[in-house]
Design a binder for these strands. Structure first.
Lengths: 221, 221
DNA sequence: ACTAATGTACGAACTGGTGAGTTAGTAATA
DNA sequence: TATTACTAACTCACCAGTTCGTACATTAGT
């Protein structure tokens, strides 16, 4: 982010704090996602950088804070993407399906982010808790869901009694699991959930599931 | 799981290989689940045991193999539980709902197992791949799903064109996510997915979702 | 007596973090 | 313009504390 492209210096070694920080974050993101927080080595991260380990401590303070910074940037990317959601011109059913599909696509396109979130959950979300930035940023996607849901429920199209957060959990769980548990699931059941050939199948399955749930005829009560 | 109830041996230091191994596995399971593979310390695991670090290497060979052994036992517990599934006397709709509920309960009751699976996924399921035991054991639950599904599809009750593995993925994803992503989800959206007061709500939501998906009227095609 | 099981002590390699000094950019001043 | 003064950006070498693993001694059970 904010790469200060200095046009003059072609090859490299100009002094550029923003660039150095961004490079550290790039490498750290890969490393943390690859081997987890405890598994990552500050020395290795530094080695993959064009700068030194000292700079990591200079800019971020420590391994823990570096991980927090990585998380903050990763969540920032998500939020940016969510802000570009443009589905409210559709009817509620189509809008929800489209939203589910975009969530599906986004998870598929950002496996590193999903690994980071898995790792952060193993650590009890302590870095998120420790971060000011990540504390109270509501999800734009949640607002969108809220409005679509209200519209669909008002018109009687949606019969399910869910709120936006729960629906978001439902959609996310499928998208997240498909990527996060790809390896164990594949090893145990012999099916690659992220097989490109099955992509459309699972994308449709998610949409069908969500719409079926929202529009199912409620017999009783 | 396979707790160390040795009835005969009164207090302590009798020589009992099986018991020592089981104790090591108990502690190792907790530690690995708590802080991940790289985060776990062999010395700490040993310290929480009534035996010594030497025994870990004596019986398991090393940290990596210990983790594999922990995984093997954890999956064994799951398989045992799945073998006690008894839902096929119900009609397909009720059977699937019941199966989903049991899966839901099981995930909730074994958060350590879920953490281990998350961790194993971060490591690309390499330990499962390296294990002979975990290689080719089909899931009993999968067989049950397969039969219920076939029955429901034959009778026309189930309109969805899913197979057992995909349905298992769908059910698991919700159950798994609810526990595995509890912390980040709670931190970001302010809702505890594992709040006991919401338990029935989410349990019903899962059942409704799966049944709605399976029985949804397929308009087109 | 013999062996499986167990405990103690130790070390080589690693790991996060830091101390201390250097270089590049920049703006004020002469 | 040249000089000086200042600071952000950076490098290198090292430390203090861990961490996995093992050599060796010892004990319990048969």
């Amino acid at each position: 982010m904010t790469s200060v492209e200095e046009p003059a210096r072609s090859n490299g070694r100009t002094r550029d704090a923003a660039r150095t920080q961004a490079e550290i974050l790039d490498v750290a993101t890969q490393e943390f996602a690859r081997v987890g927080f405890a598994g990552a080595r500050v020395d290795d991260i530094a080695a993959r950088t064009s700068t030194t380990k000292r700079m990591i401590y200079y800019y971020f303070g420590g391994k823990e804070q570096l991980f927090t910074a990585v998380l903050e940037r990763a969540y920032g990317v998500i939020r940016e993407a969510e802000q570009e959601l443009d589905v409210e011109h559709l009817d509620p059913v189509a809008a929800i399906r489209r939203l589910a599909e975009l969530t599906f696509d986004h998870h598929e396109q950002h496996p590193d982010f999903i690994r980071l979130v898995s790792i952060e959950n193993i650590h009890g979300a302590e870095h998120i808790a420790a971060s000011e930035k990540l504390g109270k940023i509501g999800s734009p996607a949640l607002d969108v869901i809220r409005r679509i849901l209200a519209s669909g429920q008002r018109s009687g199209l949606f019969t399910a009694d869910v709120d936006a957060v729960d629906l978001h959990a439902m959609i996310s769980s499928f998208c997240f699991f498909r990527v996060s548990n790809r390896h164990t699931f594949g090893a145990l059941f012999g099916r690659d959930l992220v097989d490109p050939a099955q992509r459309e199948h699972y994308r449709a399955m998610l949409g069908d599931m969500v719409i079926a749930y929202l529009t199912a005829p409620r017999a009783e009560a």
